[in-house]
Design a protein around this nucleic acid. Sequence first.
DNA 1: CATGAATGAGTCTTCATTCAT
DNA 2: CATGAATGAAGACTCATTCAT
Lengths: 218, 218, 218, 218
Amino acid sequence: MASPPVRTRSRLAPDERISEIMAVTRQLLSEKGYQNVVTSEVAERCGISEGTIYKYFDSKRELLARVAEEWFEEILGADENPPPGAGIRTRLRQLVWKGLSIIRQEPSLSRFVLMELRSDPTYRTMRIYELNRRFTARIGDLLQEAVSTGVFRADVSVRLLRDMIFGCIEHRTWAYLRGEGDFSVDEAADGITNVIYRGMLMPGVQDEGASPQSKTKR
Amino acid sequence: MASPPVRTRSRLAPDERISEIMAVTRQLLSEKGYQNVVTSEVAERCGISEGTIYKYFDSKRELLARVAEEWFEEILGADENPPPGAGIRTRLRQLVWKGLSIIRQEPSLSRFVLMELRSDPTYRTMRIYELNRRFTARIGDLLQEAVSTGVFRADVSVRLLRDMIFGCIEHRTWAYLRGEGDFSVDEAADGITNVIYRGMLMPGVQDEGASPQSKTKR
Amino acid sequence: MASPPVRTRSRLAPDERISEIMAVTRQLLSEKGYQNVVTSEVAERCGISEGTIYKYFDSKRELLARVAEEWFEEILGADENPPPGAGIRTRLRQLVWKGLSIIRQEPSLSRFVLMELRSDPTYRTMRIYELNRRFTARIGDLLQEAVSTGVFRADVSVRLLRDMIFGCIEHRTWAYLRGEGDFSVDEAADGITNVIYRGMLMPGVQDEGASPQSKTKR
Amino acid sequence: MASPPVRTRSRLAPDERISEIMAVTRQLLSEKGYQNVVTSEVAERCGISEGTIYKYFDSKRELLARVAEEWFEEILGADENPPPGAGIRTRLRQLVWKGLSIIRQEPSLSRFVLMELRSDPTYRTMRIYELNRRFTARIGDLLQEAVSTGVFRADVSVRLLRDMIFGCIEHRTWAYLRGEGDFSVDEAADGITNVIYRGMLMPGVQDEGASPQSKTKR
DNA sequence: CATGAATGAGTCTTCATTCAT
DNA sequence: CATGAATGAAGACTCATTCAT
C-alpha cells in the first residue's frame, strides 16, 4: 500500500463538502445498494472523518434519501413537452422512452428508490415519493385518456397496463445491470409501445402507425 | 414411573436436521427478508445451538441459497402439462398464471431470489440460476414458437416480451406487498395475456379468443 | 506494558459469567457512577469481549438496574424485627441505624439508586422501586403511628420528617465518601433519633429515654 | 435606504463576550443538567462559533465551574443581615429558609454543584468550594453559638445537625424536582427549624417561640 | 458429534477540542 | 482575533462465525 497521500486536513466550503459526500454516496449506492453503504466507506472515499458526515447530515438514512431526491429531481427536471397534437401512440412512446432512459442511466439508484425507499414507512411523506408519483401519474393519465376517448379498449385496467410498462422497464434494466445481454432504449421503447398500443387498440380505430424513431431519438 | 414426555434433546439424523434448519429458515426468510434473517433465531426456533448450523452449512449465505433452491424446485416441479393441442393463447395464459401465483404465494422468498441472489457474483453457477432459467425459458420457447409459426409478428424481440411478462408480474406483486391495492392473479393473468397476445398477433391470423377463465382457475 | 496474560479464551458457566459481570459492574458503579460506567471497561476487567456482555444483558441500562436490584435485595433481606413492645424511640433508632448502615456500606451504589435510577421515567415500574419504597414506608409508618397515638406533635408533616432522616443519612454519607471527616453510624443514629424524637415529642408525654447504644451496636 | 437592522456579526468586548457565554451556559445548565450541556449549543445560542468559546475558556469543565461560581456568589451575596438582637430560633430559620430557597430557585445548578463539582478531585481548590463552605459555615457557627451559650444541648454534634439541615433541604428539593408532591419553602423551613430547635433546646431554657412567618416571608 | 460461550470486526452516532484560514 | 470545518476517540450495540469442552 502506498504511503498516505499527504494527509493534509482538507478544508472545503460546506456546499462543496456536501456535494462531495453526496456524490461519493451516490456512487457507493450505485455499487452496493442501500443496506451495504457504510458511513465509514463514505468518509474514507471522501478523505474525511466519519464525524464530518454527521456535521452535514443527521443520519445515514437522511443522507441516502437526499441523494436519491437530488438525483430524481435532476432527471425529472429535464422534461420535454409532448409535440402538440401528438397522438396516443407518440405520447406513450415518449413517456416509455423517458422511463427507460432514466433507469438506464442510473440503474442502481433506481433500484434503491424503487426497492428500498419505497418500503420505508415514511416513504409516502418524502419528497421523492411526490416526484416519483408525478411521473407515473403522467403515464396513468395518458392511458386513462386513451380509454376514455375510446382509443383503447376498456377490458384491461389502467393499473395493470402501468405495471406492465414499469415492470418491463425495471426488469429490462436490472437484467442489463447484471450483464445479461445488451439493451437498447429505443428498441425497448418501440417494443413496449407496439405491444401495448396494438394490444389495447379498440377494433375499428385507425392505428396511428409507429412514430418515426428519429423523433425521440437521443 | 413413565419416561418423561420431555422432548429430550433431539438427536436427529443429519438429513432430518438439515431439513429442519432449512424449513425454519424458509419460514424466517418468508417473514423478514434476507437481511433480517439472523442465525441465532434460526437456531433458537430449531431448538439447537448456533454452532450446529455451521456443521451443516458453510455460511449463512449458503444456507439461504439452498433454501431458495429447494423451494424453487418444489414449486417448478408441480407442473401441469398444457392441454394437448392447446393454442398459443391458452398456453401463454397458463404460464403467466403460474408465474404470478408463484410470486403471489411466496413473495418474500421471491424477493430474495430476485433481488439478493441474482446480484451475487456467483449467481450464474448456482443451481437456482438453472432452475430459474428453465422456467423463463419455457415462456421464451413458447413465444419463439409463436413467432416461428407465424402466429406472432416478428417486430418485437422475444426477449422484450419476456421482460414485459416477468416485469409486470414482479412489479404487480411488490406493489401488492407494499399494500398498494388489491391483486387478483386471474385478472392479472388475463390482462397480460390479452395485451401481449393481441398486441403481437399477426394480422390475418385468427384470434383464438380468450380462454374461459375456469380452465386455469385456482 | 506487560505481555497479555496468556489470553486464554476463558469459558464460564452462564451463571458465573453473569455473576462476574455484575460484580465488576458493581465495583465500577461504585467507583465512577452510572454515567461513567462504560461497557468496554466492564468487558476489559472481566477479561471478556464487549459482545459477551450483551449475550447476558439486553442493554447497559438493564445491566445496571439488575446490579442495583440484586444489591438492594441483598441488603434489605437481612431484616431484624424490632424488639416486641419497643417504644417509638427504640424503633425509630433501629430504622435510622439500618438506613445509615446500608448507605455506609455501599455508598456509591446508593447514590446510583438514589440519584440516577430515581430519575428514570420507568423507575416506578422497576422492582427496585418497590424495594426502596418498602423501606421508606416503614419509617413513614412509624412516624405516622407516633403522631396518631399522640406521642408526636402534629405540627410537622410526616413527609418532612422522613426527608430530614433520609436527607441527613444521604448527606452524611456523601460527605464521608468525599473524605470529609469520619462517620460513625452509631453516633449519627443517636443524634438523628435524639433530635427528631425530642423535637417532636408531645409536651407532657414521658420521654422513653435514649435506648442504650449497646442494643444495636455493631 | 436605511442601514439594515441586521444584527451585524457582533463584535463584543471580551468581557461582554464572556458574560454572554456564561449567561447562556447558565441557562442551559439550568435546563438540562451538566452532562447534557453541549458546547455546540452554547455557541449556537450565543451566535458565535464553537472555537470562540475556547478562546475564553480552557475546557467545558472550566466554563461550567466558572458559571457555578458566579451564580453562587450572586446568590450568597444578597444577604440580609439578621435582625439585630434576634434569637437563635429566628436566625436559624432565616438561614434554613435561605438554603431552601436557593435550591428551590435553581435546582439544576444546585445539583451540578452538589453532585458533579463536589466529586471533582480539585473541588477543594475551587473558589466555589470556598463560597459553599462559607454558607454552611454560617449555619455551623450559629449552631455552635447555640451550644456554647447553653441554649442548645451538647449531646449532638454540630456537624450532624448541619447534615440534617442540608440533607433535608437537598432531599426535599430533589423529590420536588422529580415531581413528587408539592413543596413549600416556608412550611419546610418552619418544620426543620421546629424540629431542630425543639429537639436541641436545653431543658430549662425558655423557648423563643415560633417566629411569625411574616418576618421571613418573601 | 453437538454444544454454546465467546469473539471481534463492524455498525451508526456523538461531541469536546483543534487549527488553517 | 474569530471562525467553523474537521477531527478522532469514544460510545452502545450487533451478529456471523469459531473452537474448547
